[in-house]
Design a protein around this nucleic acid. Structure first.
Lengths: 336, 336
DNA sequence: AGCCAAGCTGTTAACGATACCAACCAGAAG
DNA sequence: CTTCTGGTTGGTATCGTTAACAGCTTGGCT
């Protein structure tokens, strides 16, 4: 079990040619006599030779590595999973492979993973940036690594981003709750330092403000990071002397948690659509976005940059859609 | 925008030392005079130098690349997402980065992605193998790439695998449906050529057989690959002159699809637990497994192999748990 | 015959980092 | 004063591949 991989030299010796000829055969395109090529191919098969892309890439330092990196909070989040799937799909179409890393919403960890990626010479990065300044990415950027954000903007960094109008979408949803007679409306979200949640929170507050409702801090829960925390937050709100009659959950995971604790007569709107939304009782009203479209767009943008697009950074805003299924249309105590 | 990354040579020139000294400082451990080290570190910071792991790895050909590869059907599947998350977590703990690829259940595509991975000298692979022979992996294996399967065995390949007792778990669940008075029980699964679905199907047929029920081909649907297909299959079954009174969905995605088409009085059991199972009407009975535990175990096994464990391949079987929530306990027409 | 073009193949020198060994220096010991 | 020791530093070759160029055939043409 020497377990040592054959090199071009081995193939060259086996076929009785120079390594250059092997290289030409392996990479195709160059003129090699058919007889010679056949001999080389036989040697390749016999030895089980496979080109070593590590060495290749070192020699071709100014070419692309055909590796991109994706950094998400956590692939377990269905939104992030859809992003990862779509990004990998585009990468494959473009002949690249994709490294994946999770920051678990920790900026230090994000930095470490990104460093490990850039050390491998990734051509570009797709990020869902954690909270905090991303200025640390500037050197990488200056050295040619392309960067695109999905779902969130990166504070302290001028890069392309593909996002939705979180502010407007949430404001519209909350306005609707108000219009149906709700005044005590709860909000669940992760920290507003994450751009997306900051926007959603602003949208919530804007809708309340426009209706002349003073936001009650007891109904605004930030930093809620997973299902169980969301469930606990909902239980807490419902135990208040003046509990909410409606609730907005900031994303899919929080919605799942909230739904395990929420009674059926609590009006409910969730950010992100999910498979069983229509099957629940009552069917769940959601603000739907299309994570596959977001990530596909981001990946295309990234590859355009990698292939030389040097236009100024742009932010692409994709549409959302309020899908009224029932839970968000339950009347409130002030219904007309 | 030269966009060219600084090398050790640049740092050496800047600090007035040799590249060897820079290497020693950058990698730590070796004896370098504090004054010299400080000068080098200053140069590193000034130039924004980062070690090039591509070159490093070429020189250190017999060391590890600290890259592993994960190959799943599709990360969008929550089971696979959990596997990916857990595997990446372990990789990070072990100082490695992880490439991810999706086969979309296509063996040819799986081969291509794996080839791209091994060309990058991955230390090991974690696979959820698609249907078909995986003998093509033997050369890679012979050259030292370690391989571990999760969720499925790989036909034609002797490797470690971490799985659950799919056969036994499904047999138990179907036995319970029979015991509650069901005779017409539907089954939804992907192709039985995928090991896991083959086992689940066998379990289903075994339970029917043991009860003296002849399986009706119209109630056994293989090759169902996603939610919409599952929904269509259910609709089809329900339109039969003698429709099923119970249904077993082979995994989470198929369950979601089936549930959108199934009436509430259809007894229902799903493989894989999911967040909202308890919130549905009726609450959904599931066969739960722990994908995080599976993947964590597989990743540990992989790293043990990478670090020299040469014991014979083993198959680890993790437990499943039948969680009775109601939908699987609905009585059938032959209930006592 | 003489010459050139076209097609094929080989030689050399990198890419950026590190293993290995040699060289240097100061101070200690003889 | 010489030799030795130990800590520090530099030189050289090399990992596997390919760009650039050089050299060799062969055959066609005049």
């Amino acid at each position: 079990m020497a377990a040592t991989r054959p090199t071009m030299k081995d193939v060259a010796a086996e076929a009785g040619v120079s390594t250059m000829t092997v290289s030409r055969v392996v990479n195709g395109g160059s003129a090699v006599a058919p007889r010679t090529a056949a001999r080389v191919e036989a040697a390749v098969r016999k030895l089980g030779y496979q080109r070593d892309d590590v060495a290749r890439q070192l020699r071709r330092t100014h070419e692309l590595s055909q590796i991109i990196g994706l950094l998400v909070d956590d692939v377990t989040d269905p939104f992030m999973a859809a992003v990862a799937s779509a990004a990998e799909h585009v990468a494959r179409q473009r002949g690249s492979v994709m490294l994946i890393g999770s920051s678990r919403a920790d900026l230090r960890r994000e930095r470490e993973v990104i460093a490990a990626f850039t050390a491998r010479r990734v051509d570009g990065l797709i990020l869902t940036p954690a909270a905090g300044s991303h200025r640390f990415l500037r050197p990488a950027q200056a050295q040619g690594t392309k960067i695109v954000c999905v779902d969130r903007a990166a504070p302290g960094l001028e890069v392309d981003a593909v996002v939705v109008d979180n502010f407007g979408a949430v404001r519209e949803a909350v306005q609707q709750l108000v219009a149906r007679g709700h005044r005590r409306i709860g909000y669940l979200g992760d920290t507003p330092k994450i751009w997306t949640f900051g926007e959603r929170r602003r949208g919530y507050l804007a809708a309340l403000g426009a209706a002349g409702i003073i936001a009650d801090p007891a109904l605004v829960r930030d930093g809620v990071r997973n299902g169980p925390e969301a469930a606990a937050a909902v239980t807490g709100m419902l135990a208040l002397p003046d509990p909410p009659t409606a609730l907005l959950a900031g994303n899919e995971l929080l919605a799942f948690g909230a739904l395990t604790a929420a009674p059926r007569d609590l009006a409910f709107v969730a950010f992100d659509d999910f498979a069983l939304a229509a099957r629940l009782t009552p069917p769940v009203t959601v603000i739907a976005q299309d994570p596959v479209a977001l990530a596909t767009s981001a990946a295309h943008l990234l590859f355009a940059r990698i292939h030389g697009d040097v236009s100024p950074p742009r932010t692409v805003v994709m549409p959302t859609r309020l899908i009224r299924r029932g839970s968000g249309e339950l009347p409130g105590p002030f219904a007309a």
